[in-house]
Write a protein that binds this DNA or RNA. Structure first.
Length: 493
RNA sequence: GAGCCAUUAGCUCAGCUGGUAGAGCACCGGACUUUUAAUCCGGGUGUCCCGCGUUCGAAUCGCGGAUGGCUCACCA
């Protein structure tokens, strides 16, 4: 049975067996294949960038072997560290037969530390001639193809480390993501905003219209929700006297997965006391333009076939006006029934008891959204779908709310925060009614939040930005999975 | 949740109207002291995603399933 198994070995098993044999050899030679602390003097990039000063000097570098070109008594290899790649050169008459042979027995994927001399080859390639090297980690599995890289998206996401090793562009996206968040944080701190953290485990999942994940606390013997937004906690902080706060963090929504949706995603929410929606629009356009400038060096962004200019100011377009322009339907002053009729006339399928606001949303999604390429603020959302936003002074059916759109996506949401506890309570009650009639996404009653408002919350502007989508926009990424290191995947059956 | 498509060597991919599986890289052996997708000589290492069926015969056709991708629905 066992013998038969050996005869019909899988290629992968055979490749791994060879590497394990090399591992055993290293131990036999008294070499630890899994090394320790090593003090580097340079990264690959530094050597290449400062070759003029570094030529013929000694260096200590470390990284992963990415390829080999052996030539008998002298050989080449490429070494990759976090900064990039550099070529290694080794000669038997420099290091001796034993060391040379040990080098030639390295595998692609092995992590090594090198003592050597910086020089340029005859063909002009900046290289390090190896004087000595140490094993840092023996690699026991073969890496994906060095030329074609790794394309299987399932492996790319499930084993992101492989994707990062062999696909350099992927690394760049995540470096850019980090710089975007750094620029965002820097911009806000600079303007006196305080960075805070609020609970991810919520007794009530509030602050957004979404289905939450439910989890369970053993000691308390109760269900808890993963937060769907930090909004209601951040506004409690406004009550507490923090007048400018922001939080960067994960939200969790128990909804479908798509190229634009991951069950956990990162947002920034920003609150500024004594400001309103128009202040937050200014903040939005300036913040996004600043990030683009810092990270890309320009506010002109290429996304697919589009060139988008993020420089402020962005136009403001009321939702009703947008629907009039793009759908050719004027819903102003219509009743629910009239609105439904108008939408049906356009050929939309409309639920018989859809409200005016639902019809408006439907028309907007179908006819307006696909046209919003250049950045624009859609404003004046109906109160029915904006339960946390202040009403417009001249029209209580609408709110001082806006959503920034770019390349057809909604990248954020902001408004003048409702600070009237009585109106807020009323809005919660309406949401609870929806919930009880089966709308699992409707808001829950948050009495503690009402209590907080009853103490008095200063009027404030609030803003949320979906960071993943912002990163997609600024890295020309088509799928949210390309900007999240470990996107959600179904467990392997 | 629905529709369409995909799954073949470690990786990237061929494989015709059904005849029993191939290439490049990687890997193994050999040559080569400045190469760079090194080159040259030799070696194919496989549960063709899984199961059932049709058939003399299935990677190929049918049905069911798994996983993934895209589109739609919901949302940020």
């Amino acid at each position: 049975m066992a013998e038969e198994h050996n005869e019909h070995q899988l290629p992968l098993e055979e490749l791994m067996k060879i590497r394990r044999a090399k591992l055993e050899d290293l131990y036999k030679q008294g070499i630890n294949p899994y090394g320790e602390r090593f003090e580097r003097t340079h990264l690959a990039r530094e050597i290449i960038d400062h070759f003029d000063q570094l030529a013929e000097t000694e260096t200590r570098i470390a990284g992963r072997i990415m390829s080999f070109r052996t030539h008998g008594k002298a050989s080449f290899a490429d070494l990759a560290d976090q900064s990039g790649r550099i070529q290694l050169y080794i000669r038997v008459d420099q290091v001796g037969e034993a060391k040379y042979e040990q080098f030639c027995k390295l595998d692609i994927g092995d992590v090594v530390a090198v003592y050597g001399r910086i020089f340029r080859t005859r063909r002009g390639e900046i290289s390090v001639e190896v004087y000595d090297f140490l094993m840092m980690a023996k690699s026991l599995r073969p890496l994906p193809d060095k030329w074609y890289g790794l394309k299987d998206v399932e492996i790319r996401y499930r084993q992101r480390y492989l994707d990062l090793i062999v696909n350099p562009d992927v690394r760049k996206v995540f470096e850019t993501r980090s710089r975007i968040i750094q620029a965002l944080r820097g911009y806000l701190l600079e303007r006196g905003f305080l960075e805070v953290e609020t609970p991810m485990l919520n007794v009530i999942a509030g602050g957004a219209t979404a289905r939450p994940f439910v989890t369970y606390h053993n000691a308390l013997d109760m269900d808890l929700y993963m937060r769907i937004a930090p909004e209601l906690y951040l506004k409690r902080l406004l009550v507490g006297g923090f007048e400018r706060v922001f939080e960067i963090g994960k939200n969790f929504r128990n909804e479908g997965i798509s190229t634009k949706h991951n069950p956990e995603f990162t947002s920034v929410e920003i609150y500024q006391a004594y400001a309103d929606a128009s202040d937050m629009m200014k903040l939005t356009e300036e913040l996004v333009a600043y990030i683009a400038q810092e990270v890309l060096g320009t506010t002109e962004v290429q996304f697919g076939d589009y060139t988008v200019n993020l420089a402020p100011p962005w136009p403001r377009l009321p939702m009703l006006e947008a629907v009039r322009q793009y759908a050719g339907v004027d819903l102003a002053g219509l009743s629910d029934a009239e609105a439904r009729a108008a939408a049906r006339e356009k050929g939309l399928e409309i639920d018989p008891d859809a409200s005016y606001a639902q019809v408006l949303e439907e028309l907007f999604d179908t006819y307006v959204e696909p046209n919003l390429i250049q950045p624009v603020f859609i404003t004046d959302y109906p109160v029915e779908i904006s339960p946390l936003a202040k009403r417009k002074k001249d029209n209580p059916q609408l709110t001082e709310r806006f959503e920034p759109f770019v390349v057809t996506w909604e990248i954020g949401n902001g408004f003048s925060e409702l600070n009237d506890p009585i109106d807020q309570l009323d809005r919660f009650r309406k949401q609870v009614e929806k919930r009880e009639s089966g709308d699992e996404e409707a808001h829950m009653m948050d009495e503690d939040f009402i209590v907080a408002l009853e103490y008095g919350m200063p009027p404030a502007g609030g803003l949320g930005i979906g960071i993943d989508r912002l990163v997609m926009l600024l890295t020309n990424s088509r799928s949210i999975r390309d900007v999240i290191l470990f996107p959600h995947m179904r467990p392997k059956g």
